[in-house]
């Protein structure tokens, strides 16, 4: 539960920091401009460079291969991939205890040498961070955060992550609500920045990594203790799967993307036997703790056989294995 007082601590500091940041931003902007000039002048000096995956480029480079969907539609779809926090919350609500072995290993981060690999795995670690936060496993958050910071920096979006504040909150085991807020909003800001700066290709990988990991966590829990609500959640993910494929196919001319699309299509194939039926209900407006709340009272019935579920789990595991072993 969020406690407003502890959150205030963070927000007060955040406001103070914002004021200072604005002062500092003037100096920084000059340094950045100078730095950029230096970088331009120093190109080709033999410094260590990222491997080329034809991907460290903005969307605009795909001019000769027009996007299948508009930028607006793309934004809508990316917004539509629900937050990994919801999946983590659902897992926790089942009463299943935290399991460290479900998390992706963070010791291979240095091997991720392209934007493609980094963005996908950043999504994976972002989802794991939500899982850790949900269970208040502050001790494990640091190693997860270090991996996230490294990848975000390499993708040039690390400035959205207030690593020191998160580290302090996690180390002191305090303000869990602030920790959750700052973690989630950092990812939201990174994603928003990527899309605003014509880097939707990176954004689409970020959300794909998050989606796959969220599904993977749910599948692991279901394998150990089948829980109706979680099985339903796995089943109704059919709804977003087509959208996810739609955005990834935009970049299929890139071979790395093409492989990823193949893997996600395998998952989609296993979903063919999942049926979703809705029985209408009489909506009602109720007041809960002074808040006006709409309740549709319709019923959503998700039919997913054990066999289909097992196949979906296997396909998700394969996709996740492929991503973390890139």
């Amino acid at each position: 539960m969020i406690q407003s007082n502890s959150k205030k601590d963070y927000f007060y500091r955040a406001k103070k920091m914002n004021f200072m940041n604005r002062k500092i931003s003037t100096v920084l902007a000059i340094l950045i401009a100078g730095g950029s000039l230096l970088m331009v002048n120093c190109q080709g000096d033999g410094s260590k460079a990222k491997k080329s995956d034809d991907f460290a480029i903005p969307d605009s480079i795909f001019k000769d291969k027009p996007l299948m969907i508009s930028k607006e539609a793309m934004n809508d779809i990316i917004d539509n991939i629900s937050s990994p926090v919801e999946m983590a919350a659902l897992i926790k609500s089942t009463g299943v205890p935290f399991n460290q072995k479900f998390l992706a290993p963070t010791n291979k981060v240095d091997n991720l040498d392209t934007d493609f690999k980094q963005a996908l795995n950043l999504g994976i670690y972002g989802c794991d961070l939500g899982y850790l936060n949900m269970y208040e496993k502050t001790g494990s958050i640091i190693s997860s955060m270090q991996a996230i910071k490294k990848l975000a920096d390499q993708l040039r979006i690390g400035h959205f992550f207030d690593f020191n504040t998160i580290k302090r909150l996690a180390t002191n085991n305090e303000n869990i609500d602030s920790l959750m807020y700052i973690s989630v909003s950092s990812f939201n800001n990174m994603d928003e920045y990527l899309r605003e700066n014509n880097r939707s290709n990176i954004s689409s990988l970020l959300v794909t990594g998050m989606w796959v990991e969220g599904m993977y966590l749910a599948c692991q829990v279901v394998k150990e203790s089948p829980h109706d609500q979680l099985v339903e959640r796995i089943g109704d993910s059919k709804i977003v799967l087509s959208d996810l494929l739609l955005i990834l196919k935009n970049y299929k001319s890139n071979s790395s993307f093409a492989n990823l699309v193949k893997e996600i299509e395998k998952i989609k194939k296993e979903y063919e036997n999942v049926t979703i039926q809705v029985i209408p209900g009489e909506p009602e407006m109720v007041e809960v703790d002074g808040m006006l709340m709409f309740k549709s009272n319709e019923q959503q019935i998700i039919d997913i056989s054990d066999e289909t579920l097992a196949k979906i789990i296997a396909a998700i595991e394969n996709a996740r294995t492929m991503i973390i072993n890139l």
Binding site: I2, S4, F11, K15, E86, N188
Partner: peptide
């Protein structure tokens, strides 16, 4: 930077008002 900081301030302040809820998106 300035407009970004302004809207971020408002998000931070507004998130204070969500009470017994967990932030998802703004």
């Amino acid at each position: 930077n300035h407009s970004f900081a302004q809207s971020d301030d408002l998000v931070n302040v507004c998130a204070l008002g969500i009470g017994n809820a967990t932030y998802l998106k703004d």
